[in-house]
Simulated assay, not measured.
Amino acid sequence: MDPKAKIYIAGHRGMVGSAIVRKLQAEGFENLLLRTSTELDLRNQEAVDRFFREHKPDYVFLAAARVGGIVANNTYRAEFLYDNLMIESNIIHAAYQHSVTKLLFLGSSCIYPKLAPQPLKEEYLLTGTLEQTNEPYAIAKIAGLKLCDAYRSQYGSNFISAMPTNLYGPNDNYDLNNSHVLPALLRKMIVAERNGEPQVEIWGSGTPMREFLHVDDLAEACYFLMHHYNEAGFINIGTGTDLSISSLAVLIKEITGYKGQLVFNTEKPDGTPKKLLDCSRIHALGWKARIDLKNGIEKVYQEIKSLPF
């Protein structure tokens, strides 16, 4: 990418999009196209087409999405499917129509079958049934990566896709009804430590295994792929290591200094039993995550511990 190229980051105020903006700015890219959802409704095809026609971006990072944890995914099933289908379809089609040089579409590791072999290889896509609680979101993301492949196949568009694992970092969502497990646990223990609460409830059994990637590492990977990856299909982005939710809770308890008990509510859903990405393809290209989980969480804790939760 030429440092003077016009680069559109869709979803620039979200956790992923803002990390990509920070990375691009650190690398000297200043011609960034940024629009809030109020300024540009990505579900509106006419508005998206007008934006691309007027500004003609050279590169696109498609990080915009409606996202949330298990409860949000399961509660707002229609919106998670409709909104994400519209966002990705409008942007990908406009990128084709207005001759974008390259587009990177970001999905989610929930696209894999619930009981796929571990670790998850890219070729396991569509080989089994999805996890029911986030099926609409997963289907939308699968449609997005298939759309990129279809435009590549039919029109020769250089549209690539990447599937990150569970993310955390600056600008995360700490709403307990819509957040993912790591930020939810951080918030719960910060508040419990502040208030001297005797216990913290953790949803599920604590046995599911999860992999966590700092969003700054993801931004590094996206920047890397824009320079070094030009293939059909998609590529996993993760750390290659996982831990149980109960182990994560103990780690966060240690970092926050919380002294109370951890109580697991087994009436709440666990989700997929294990979700570890096989990252051998991106490792072979020369990229690996750098931020250790404990150090990453400690950094996030320092950033948010004084927030008025």
Results as ranks from 00 to 15, higher is better:
143 A>H: 14
143 A>F: 15
195 N>G: 15
28 G>I: 09
260 G>W: 01
111 I>P: 02
175 D>H: 07
249 A>T: 12
289 A>I: 04
199 Q>L: 13
219 A>L: 00
71 V>F: 11
300 V>K: 06
260 G>E: 03
56 K>I: 00
237 I>Y: 02
188 K>R: 13
291 I>P: 01
14 G>K: 04
90 N>A: 05
87 I>F: 12
91 I>F: 02
286 G>E: 01
86 M>V: 05
80 F>T: 00
54 E>I: 09
133 T>L: 15
24 L>P: 02
161 S>W: 13
216 D>L: 12
118 Q>W: 07
14 G>M: 11
144 G>A: 13
257 G>H: 03
152 R>P: 12
278 D>E: 02
279 C>W: 04
247 S>M: 08
230 N>P: 10
274 K>Q: 12
106 L>V: 14
75 T>V: 10
264 F>D: 03
206 G>N: 14
304 I>T: 10
162 A>G: 10
279 C>H: 08
101 T>Q: 15
211 E>H: 04
163 M>F: 10
79 E>S: 12
291 I>T: 04
284 A>S: 07
21 V>K: 15
96 Y>H: 14
210 R>E: 06
120 L>Y: 07
186 L>T: 06
296 G>S: 05
224 F>T: 00
196 G>E: 04
85 L>W: 02
120 L>R: 08
106 L>T: 13
206 G>H: 09
83 D>F: 08
269 P>I: 06
45 Q>M: 05
135 E>T: 15
156 G>H: 11
219 A>P: 00
301 Y>I: 00
131 E>V: 09
53 R>P: 00
116 A>Q: 11
153 S>K: 15
275 K>C: 15
153 S>N: 15
120 L>P: 02
122 E>Q: 14
237 I>P: 03
253 K>N: 06
64 A>Y: 02
182 L>A: 07
289 A>Q: 11
12 H>I: 01
138 A>D: 06
304 I>V: 15
282 I>L: 07
223 Y>Q: 01
155 Y>A: 07
243 L>P: 11
252 I>H: 11
305 K>M: 01
170 P>V: 09
276 L>Y: 07
296 G>F: 06
179 S>M: 00
132 Q>E: 14
286 G>T: 08
65 A>E: 11
262 L>I: 03
277 L>V: 06
272 T>F: 08
56 K>W: 05
112 Y>T: 00
10 A>G: 09
185 L>H: 04
216 D>F: 09
130 L>D: 06
93 H>N: 11
54 E>Y: 08
177 N>G: 07
166 N>F: 13
307 L>N: 09
191 V>H: 08
86 M>H: 12
117 P>M: 11
38 T>E: 12
39 E>P: 04
285 L>F: 07
169 G>S: 03
177 N>Y: 15
297 I>A: 04
1 M>A: 15
267 E>L: 04
246 S>Y: 10
216 D>V: 11
156 G>L: 10
92 I>F: 10
306 S>V: 05
191 V>Y: 13
35 R>F: 15
265 N>T: 01
245 I>H: 09
268 K>T: 12
207 T>V: 05
223 Y>S: 02
11 G>P: 09
283 H>T: 12
226 M>C: 02
53 R>I: 01
215 V>H: 05
254 E>G: 01
216 D>P: 00
52 F>M: 02
209 M>R: 12
16 V>L: 09
